[in-house]
């Protein structure tokens, strides 16, 4: 959002880009661009975490295999997650307040209803159906399709 600080006409280029991305999803154009197709894995990861655990990022879904840059320390943390979190005093999957506590199911249901009521669920389903169609066209299984969009970068973005 550094662009907002600098625009002499008080525009928000970053926000415009965000609006365009949303529009491309609404109208289904996202499937035709490499970066657009990545939306599927983003939705599954993020919305999955929010609806299942109430967090955008959740340690149990943050696998070292997908994030090798987490480094040896990251590997160590993943291997003994509970112990490390206990050591540093977090309340992993615990009741009541505290770090990474288990968010009560009632709150998760509220989040689900918010998703349904405000159109997030509808948006997720749209992305799923269009992506499945494209995966079938490409003759790829769902897993292969996700692997592809998660890893392939045609690298012609910085010319």
């Amino acid at each position: 959002m550094s662009c907002i600080t600098r625009c002499p006409r008080k525009n928000g280029p970053g926000l415009i880009i965000q609006a365009l991305r949303n529009l491309s999803q609404e109208l289904g154009y996202f499937i035709d661009s490499e970066k657009g197709r990545q939306q599927l894995v983003l939705n599954r990861a993020l919305c999955g975490n929010i609806l299942n655990y109430g967090y955008c990022v959740y340690p149990r879904t943050f696998h070292y295999s997908d994030h090798p840059e987490n480094g040896p320390v990251g590997k160590l943390i993943e291997d003994n997650l509970e112990a490390v979190h206990k050591r540093v005093g977090s309340n992993l999957d615990g009741e009541g307040p505290g770090i990474l506590r288990k968010i009560p199911q009632s709150d998760l249901d509220e989040l689900k209803r918010i998703f349904d009521v405000t159109g997030a669920t509808e948006r997720m389903e749209k992305i799923e159906t269009i992506s499945k169609k494209r995966a079938k066209e490409l003759g790829l299984s769902d897993e292969e399709y996700c692997r592809q969009i998660f890893t392939i970068n045609s690298e012609e973005h910085y010319i």
Binding site: N22, Q39, L46, C47, I50, Y55, V57, I103, D107
Partner: peptide, 14 residues
């Protein structure tokens, strides 16, 4: 819960 900011900025939720 989460504020959903990361999902919003990743264009996953409207």
């Amino acid at each position: 819960t989460t504020c959903g900011g990361i999902a919003y900025h990743s264009d996953s939720i409207p």
